[in-house]
Design a protein around this nucleic acid. Sequence first.
DNA 1: GACGCTGATTTATTAATTGC
DNA 2: GCAATTAATAAATCAGCGTC
Length: 398
Amino acid sequence: MRTRQEITDMFSTFAQLEGDKFSKWSIDKKLYKNIQNHLELSSEALKSENFWALYWHKHWRSKSNNFARMHLSAYLQEACYWTASKAVAKFTLSQYTLADYFQMAIAEVEIILKDFNSEKCSSLKTYAIMAIPSRLKDVLRQRKEANLCTNWALLRKVSKKLLSEALSEAGFSQSAIAQYRLAWTCFNQLYVQNQPGGTSKLPEPNRQLWEAIANLYNQQRQSQLTQLTEQRNAQTIEQWLNQTVLYVRAYLFPAVKSLNAFKQDDDTTVTFDLPDPSFDSPMADMIAQEDVQNRQNQISQMFAVLLKALQSLDGQSQEVLKLYYQQGLTQQQIMQQLQMSQPTVSRRLVKGRESMLAGLIKWSQALNICVDSNQIKDMSLALEEWLRNQYGEYNMNP
DNA sequence: GACGCTGATTTATTAATTGC
DNA sequence: GCAATTAATAAATCAGCGTC
């Protein structure tokens, strides 16, 4: 991927993918003209990308300005692309392509903008690079959970509001939605009582239970439904709930569309390779490669520091961190497994993280990197991320 | 005034932290 | 390590606003 150099490009171009790799930057003329006008009116001192990122973010937040949103969306294309590239490399067995991950990341931009606090973190890009992978991970986890659980577990998990939205999205009338919702409520009342526990592999209700759900539905339909409806038998209720599950899944996770189908306004947008003379010379390429190399070296060094800090912890702290981050156990579960109290588990987690963070800060200071409270916060987040990766939370192998 | 939408607030539950 | 407290989260409810 060619990194954009000009402010105008950064805030007006969008990555185009072809054959699952970066192809070119597509420019939006309206955005280009807008940022160009702003740049012309501003002083030299204000021509930094961070200034404009914060400027558009402020506009977006205060006035929900669509131009501002689009400029920021363009600005965060690289962060989304890097996240997608990392995801592809990580989940080699995944059903998703780079374009899919890229689009999932793009879909999270709105939330990133919402969560970004310019008073606490001075760079939107740095924040996005850190936050987008985390958002993408959550999306993938949710997808995995919903895909793996049975229909009946999903019905138990889903909220009333989401159920109504899914049915509405599927084109159901309000009257039909009310009937399906009542059937679902009856299912929840009876099925939950018969199936305690939180397993995601809940079995299909038996005939007897379907009959009971249908009976409950027929009892409640007159008091719960505003319109008079006929009696329903167990088969109908079962069919309704089976349909409902399909619509809920479809609503929660619509099929990821290819970026090639990315709709653009033909009147305002034209696609071409950006003329970027600074990147055409072999020297410029070398400099760019060196930058990437330097960054990668620094990241490798940081990982080595973290690994050393982890290994220097006592065995029990390492075990606690491993169970917490690798197996995703709660402190209660770790307590049972390691025969220690839950507060002890908590303290070992905190102490372990603190000790590793101290190592990281020491390393940063040795490199003459000034560490303020914001950076400590960022480091702490990076540390959590590293622990999750280190212990292979990403090894979902979907 | 009814209605729908959106964001804020409240409530319930669970998980994690802290004081002793 | 117990018990109390705090934090985080999801869902439900409420209030304010604009539109018809």
